[in-house]
């Protein structure tokens, strides 16, 4: 199968500093792909290079089979980009912003109105067509930017931290739009984020740190491999619990008053809980997260 995005041995240096080092990966058409990693990991550098606005130091990067360094115009025509920082023209109305975009992408003038209405409908901003961009809230500006990036019906949509700085409700709304798009248009979506829950929705996740990809797989596979579910138990009968855990051959460690034990084998855990029932003061089962994956690979928290 032809990959929509293909990156081979990509390296980017700023003077002596290496921002991205020998990174290779590929993205299937129609999938949602996430770059996960702390600030400064090289996510934006990679996205900026793929978007043709930054020159690589070495490597081969292609989108839809076209080289991003030599066939820039062909690449620019098939990608839509929402940058990390706002890029709306605040002194113009929403409609004027969208119209300029139509000109930039050389769309037929007869289609301007139809397309503008279509993308504004998509992000529920039809009533704001005549509003000045400066008068919109942060979330609405983001939605306009997403709408704008879709005007020329790109095959790949790049979203560089699309929800950073937005409130939880707006975040989930924006995600609803993104998922709707992907489903309806079969668009390939490439995003960077440092929110774990956002990465969980994706088909594939590449975890990046210090300019390198340290893990690459589906979220489930990554968690299965690098994270575990744990149960935290607080008990009034410590020796009793210790004996039971040993009986079920569950390893545990003691953190203050809490017993932390593996929870992947639910049957064994249920045995312990059933028998120890009355003495349990508190119980928490925590599923493995992508943050655990990151923590286990790098020894650091992603936000650290």
């Amino acid at each position: 199968m032809l990959m929509m995005i293909s990156v081979e041995h990509f390296t980017k240096k700023y003077g002596k500093f290496t921002a991205v080092e020998d990174v290779s990966f590929s993205v299937r058409p129609g999938s949602i792909f996430a770059f996960l990693g702390p600030n400064g990991a090289g996510k934006s550098t990679t996205i900026n290079t793929l978007c043709t606005i930054m020159e690589k130091t070495s490597g081969t990067l292609t989108i839809d089979g076209k080289d991003v360094s030599t066939q820039t115009d062909a690449v620019r025509n098939v990608i839509g980009v929402v940058f990390q920082e706002p890029t709306l023209d605040l002194k113009m109305t929403v409609e004027e912003n969208l119209k300029m975009h139509c000109y930039f992408y050389n769309l037929p003038k007869a289609q301007f109105q139809e397309r503008i209405d279509f993308v504004l409908e998509l992000v529920d901003l039809k009533d704001w067509k005549k509003a000045m961009a400066a008068s919109l809230s942060g979330g609405m500006k983001r939605r306009v930017e997403i709408a704008r990036s879709l005007l020329h019906l790109p095959k790949v949509l790049f979203l560089d931290e699309p929800t950073t700085g937005l409130d939880p409700q707006t975040r989930s709304n924006i995600w609803a739009y993104i998922l709707k798009l992907q489903k309806e248009k079969g668009m390939t979506i490439f995003l960077t984020t440092h929110y774990m829950d956002e990465a969980e929705i994706c088909d594939q996740v590449a975890i990046m740190d210090h300019g390198q990809i340290i893990a690459f797989d589906s979220p489930d596979a990554l968690k299965k491999q690098h994270a575990r579910d744990v149960a935290r138990i607080k008990t009034s009968n410590q020796s009793g619990l210790e004996r039971l855990l040993a009986e079920e051959q569950l390893t545990y460690e003691k953190q203050d008053q809490l017993y932390v034990t593996e929870a992947s084998d639910l049957e064994k855990l249920l045995q312990v809980i059933k028998q120890h029932g009355p003495a349990i003061q508190d119980l928490e089962i925590q599923k493995g997260t992508l943050n655990d994956v990151f923590l286990n690979i790098t020894g650091r928290n992603i936000r650290g």
Partner: peptide
């Protein structure tokens, strides 16, 4: 203004 506001990026990433 266009550079500072970020709008220049929107222009630069297009086929213009």
């Amino acid at each position: 203004d266009d550079i500072v506001s970020g709008y220049m990026k929107e222009i630069l990433v297009s086929p213009v």
